[in-house]
Write a protein that binds this DNA or RNA. Structure first.
Length: 301
DNA sequence: AACCTATCCTGCCCGC
DNA sequence: TGCGGGCAGGATAGGT
């Protein structure tokens, strides 16, 4: 999927193009993209129409837009709603300037027609080839990590991400070391730290010179801290260049690609020289997918 | 409780 | 050209 940097890039785009807009119409082209919505597509559509979009938020790979519902009294909205998006492996949120009743594009699953104060229309559209992603209307609940006010119920179980205000690097280093399994598996576990997928796990492990199969509890606190700092640096750098994209599948809200692919050191670089030592990057099976690493720089210890 | 495996989907790319 | 297998950046239910 799009990982934290790609989702953050999408969030920034939505903030810029849709914050404050009112939803005028909703079309669900494929119900399977609503599999995490508690009601049916009718319910989804009815809830959204007339709602105003707030400032988009993100934790890890979850993205949500708080909703101010039509006719709801703000005073006693005990459980404020939000439009929740998870992009899965191939989801995209794109801004379109079509007419709302134009036929769906190739992998377009849901189209949300919005209008701003001056009456200008713009569509927020959910595209998803593989259907692992979804949109839903969800309820916002208190954040049990107390790093922010509210989080969607469906994202309440995941840990804070490394770029969140109040993120505690020492605490994450300790929590990584509480696990016995391979350190890469722990980095991918969204309930330990959120936002990291296969690409940024491999890049972070390469940067910190840690072997992906190293048991997490065998890392010293200093080494775990170095790994956490590598994660933060890699994610920050990727956000700064608009995320990674390899093909048409991973685009920004405005349809442009991210540039982090240019500076990948390990991920997808099998056979290429390690940028640090020049030896070839290896690609090895790991958890039904692959790890990319320099077996010289990243030793088991 | 912690850990791991299987599974949800589609389309593209490769080799035969 | 056609077909089948492998593969892709994720999350999670359910097993041990």
């Amino acid at each position: 999927m799009p990982e934290l940097p790609e989702v953050e890039t999408v969030r920034l785009g939505i903030e810029h193009l849709f914050a404050g807009h009112r939803i005028d119409a909703v079309r669900v082209f494929d119900e399977r993209s609503l599999k995490r919505h508690p009601g049916d597509s009718q319910d989804f559509t009815q809830t959204l129409i007339g709602a105003h979009l707030g400032q988009p938020q993100r934790r890890g790979k979850f993205l949500w837009i708080p909703l101010e519902l039509a006719g709801a009294s703000s005073v006693e909205s005990v459980a404020p709603p939000a439009l929740l998006a998870h992009l899965g492996m191939s989801g995209q949120l794109l801004a379109h300037d079509l007419s709302a009743d134009a036929p769906p594009l190739r992998h377009e699953r849901i189209r949300i027609d919005t209008v701003d104060e001056s009456g200008r229309h713009r569509e927020l559209s959910f595209h998803d080839q593989r259907l692992f992603g979804s949109l839903a209307v969800d309820t916002l609940v208190a954040d049990r990590f107390a790093l922010r006010d509210l989080v969607p119920q469906q994202a309440a179980h995941i840990a804070p991400d490394p770029l969140e205000a109040g993120f505690d690097r020492a605490r994450l280093a300790r929590s990584i070391r509480r696990h016995r399994s391979a350190v890469k598996r722990v980095l991918l576990d969204q309930t330990t730290v959120s936002g990291i997928g296969n690409i940024y796990a491999d890049e972070s492990l390469w940067a910190a010179r840690v072997h992906p199969e190293q048991p997490a509890d065998s890392l010293s606190q200093a080494r775990a801290l170095r790994l956490v700092d590598a994660v933060v640096a890699v994610l920050r750098r990727a956000v700064a260049v608009g995320g990674t994209s390899f093909d048409e599948q991973y685009k920004h809200v405005n349809g442009e690609s991210g540039y982090f692919a240019i500076e990948l050191s390990a991920y997808g670089q099998s056979g290429q020289p390690c940028p640090r030592c020049g030896r070839p990057i290896k690609r090895v099976a790991f958890m039904n997918r692959h790890s990319h690493l320099c077996t010289y720089c990243q030793r088991m210890r």
